[in-house]
Design a protein around this nucleic acid. Structure first.
Lengths: 282, 282
DNA sequence: GGGATCGATACCCGCGAGGTATCGATGGTG
DNA sequence: CACCATCGATACCTCGCGGGTATCGATCCC
């Protein structure tokens, strides 16, 4: 199977429409139709059920979609990491660390300082991204290491080292009745009248249904809370960075949040190893 | 980057010789040379330093070798798993479990029985393989689940669930002076005069240097011990399957052995999930 | 210095990827 | 119910690229 065929297949599976997929791929529709049927013939498997009015994935097709995406990520990662090691020889930063914007605000500078002090440390690019994008960046080679937060992120398929575990606090407008309590429970916070929990975007950028404002990052969220439009439950370390007008109250029964450093399992990079060593010594 | 180019590159990197690589690939040498230089041009990276007398990998080249192998495995896995889900619809076994020959002899039948009792259980093919091959089989799609043994195998890059942890025992000929002891230490066993530890093959089939007989599987090993030619340290559970004439003595300071069930991180297979569920309930 | 080895280059051929035109099936519509 | 719009498949053509043979040029060995 050639990566071109795989790319064609994934695009059709995403669009569920040969014409649109062909357009996205920058080719005409007939060669795309032919490429897919040749792929089906070679695999000996029907990937799409198609009529002139609809295209749907077969079971085998959805397996190929999942596995094929992973394979394409791996190919892209190979390409990117190869290019970057060659660039690294010429002096540019050779390590990309990715973390969620607004998270690990306290840990990250410590980590970078500790690593910079190591012998043989290289320049580190920090990439801030949205929710759930880190795994993707790590898989397709745009990043070399990530700071993840369980249970929000999945570290599945990566090597990891746990850095820290912390409880969570409810973040509320300072004037709110709950704000003076010494602690609360999840049940106290999840259904506050007039203070719904915000909705975070799905991976595809859409938002789940429900009440609560749509939120894209922590800055937005904090502002909404200050405006009295939302409440949120965040890791304790967020406390140090709350603007005036917000209060934080420990939530006793919220799940613990673990910060971990993750890297691709077959990484042999000296730089990644050094950064992980620095992280575990924090 | 097309998978063909990647395959060509990996073959040349393995052979370190364009002629031999071309032969292995079943093509002539000139097209191979051209393919590699085109790849280098497109990546903007030199992969090989070559003179007419020698071919060596550059640093970027070794990165591409490692990442490229992983990518090729992922592509192969996509292909194989797609083919197999289509076959599964026609009734053939749709789950391949791989474990080291001779290991988990006691756990495996229990696991298979427990899974067979689950509703919706499918047929399971058991694949026995040599040392260190399991990770490969799981990565390239020839297997769906594996039973691994830490610290011998690496579960890096897979999702896992721990099944059991056990100590290790020294396995000796029954008549040996140590065989009557209630326990021993690693130091007692590693350098027994006349009873060297056996040598296991590396991944490429070669054996490390040193004393001790070369061993390929447990049957061979046990026979060598019975003949008084070797001693070994094995997980406790091996005890139940010792032939007459062999004795087992607990080794107090040997590392604990953890048996775990591992599967590819993005597996959404109902069958794999069921097998893992059965395993954790054992 | 001559031959052997090995990667690169020159040149040619055929397959297959890609394009345009068109067909055939299907579902909505006046 | 006939007509049309939509959409994937088919027919047919072209050309670029993957692959082959012949040969060159550099390097090491005797």
């Amino acid at each position: 199977m050639e990566t071109r065929e795989l790319r064609y297949f994934v695009t059709v599976a995403e669009e569920m429409h040969f014409g649109r997929a062909a357009h996205r791929l920058g080719i005409a529709q007939p060669p795309l139709s032919r490429a897919i049927s040749r792929l089906e013939r070679r695999l000996g498997v029907v990937l799409f059920e198609r009529t002139s009015r609809s295209v749907t994935l077969t079971e085998a097709g959805s397996v190929l979609l999942r596995e094929g995406r992973a394979a394409l990520d791996a190919v892209e990662a190979a390409e990117r990491r190869t290019r970057r090691t060659a660039l690294a020889a010429t002096g540019s930063p050779s390590l990309v660390l990715v973390t969620k914007a607004g998270a690990a605000a306290e840990l990250l500078p410590k980590l970078l300082d500790a690593y910079a002090a190591e012998p043989g440390a290289v320049a580190v690019d920090v990439l801030l991204c949205g929710i759930g994008e880190q795994e993707r960046l790590l898989r397709d080679g745009r990043a070399d290491v990530a700071l993840l937060h369980r249970p929000f992120d999945s570290a599945s398929g990566f090597d990891t080292e746990e850095l820290r575990t912390e409880g969570q606090v409810a973040v509320l407008p300072a004037g709110h009745p709950l704000a003076t309590r010494s602690h609360v429970l999840m049940a106290d916070v999840t259904a506050l009248p007039g203070l719904p929990m915000p909705r975070w975007p799905n991976l595809d950028g859409t938002y789940p249904d429900g009440p609560g404002p749509q939120v894209r990052d922590h800055a937005q969220l904090l502002q909404l809370i200050a405006l009295g439009r939302a409440a949120a439950v965040l890791p304790e370390s967020a406390r140090a960075y709350l603007p005036a007008g917000l209060a934080a109250v420990p939530v006793l029964d919220a799940p613990e949040v673990t910060t971990l450093i993750a890297w691709p399992p077959h990484s042999r990079s000296q730089a990644v190893a050094g950064l992980v060593r620095a992280a575990t010594r924090l």
